[in-house]
């Protein structure tokens, strides 16, 4: 098992956002994390990446307990994130944004060349500031930057937000080819269909609690929809 989370509780000061969350993820598989606005999806990813210190519970990644570790240490262990809203660096060019991904000094499998092969559209804009690109291209930069970190686990927070359906499809297709190399993935989406189709297992959270989990084959859309809205 690559990632195992048990009894995770976390929040923002007095506000509690996650209650006794359990999650497991195998090497090479993709997990969809679904839930409505404010369910706690982003909070869970921020716990995994060390941006939030959990109040209790544990997070085990690849044999190490990482709860409470610093974000840069966790990144170095092989977890990368495409954050909600992309969070590209506006003062950096496209290529520099991609190079930032390499700063964790993990052994190099991904290179600029490979990322440009994956997203040919980016190569033309490599010397341009990242912020002048279209939303879809910016998302490609964000994904490329995360891949450049050579992660074993990639977390994607609402990749589809604000993007045209064709672009979303394209990005997910690309991710699919990447997971063939053994990369594990957690994708966060509000769109239940989009998420389930792209994953092996799913976890539905509502108001900070896990309300349902299962595999793609056994997923029942109407039951999930009920869980999603907390019924």
């Amino acid at each position: 098992m690559l990632l195992e989370i048990k009894d995770l509780n976390a929040g923002y000061g007095e506000i509690k956002a996650l209650f006794d969350v359990d999650l497991t993820l195998n090497q090479g598989s993709t997990l969809a994390l679904i839930g409505s606005n404010g369910a706690g999806k982003t909070t869970l990813l921020r716990c995994i990446t060390g941006l939030i210190k959990p109040n209790n519970g544990y997070i085990n990644f690849n044999g190490d307990n990482i709860e409470g570790c610093k974000p840069h240490d966790i990144a170095t262990k092989g977890i990368a994130m495409v954050p909600e809203g992309r969070r590209l660096f506006p003062s950096l060019t496209v290529e520099e944004n991609l190079l930032m991904g390499m700063c964790n000094n993990r052994e190099q499998e991904w290179t600029l060349e490979k990322v440009y092969n994956l997203f040919p559209a980016l190569k033309v804009f490599r010397k341009k500031m990242a912020t002048v690109l279209s939303g879809g291209q910016q998302q490609m930069v964000a994904v490329g930057r995360a891949l450049m970190a050579n992660p074993r686990l990639l977390l994607c927070d609402e990749l589809s937000l604000g993007l045209a359906p064709v672009v979303v499809k394209d990005i997910y297709r690309t991710l699919k080819t990447v997971t063939k190399t053994g990369l594990s993935l957690i994708i966060v989406e509000q769109d239940i269909n989009q998420a389930i189709v792209a994953s092996d297992t799913f976890l539905c959270i509502c108001e900070g609690k896990v309300v349902m989990s299962g595999t793609r084959e056994t997923a029942d859309r109407s039951l999930i929809a009920n869980a999603y809205f907390g019924n």
Partner: peptide, 24 residues
């Protein structure tokens, strides 16, 4: 320089820079 690039990234967004494995 690489150091300069990291500095510009920190000025933009220190939190995201730490996600890149950089000890800010």
């Amino acid at each position: 320089t690489r150091f300069g690039m990291i500095v510009r990234a920190i000025v933009d967004d220190a939190e995201t820079t730490s996600l890149m494995g950089i000890n800010t």
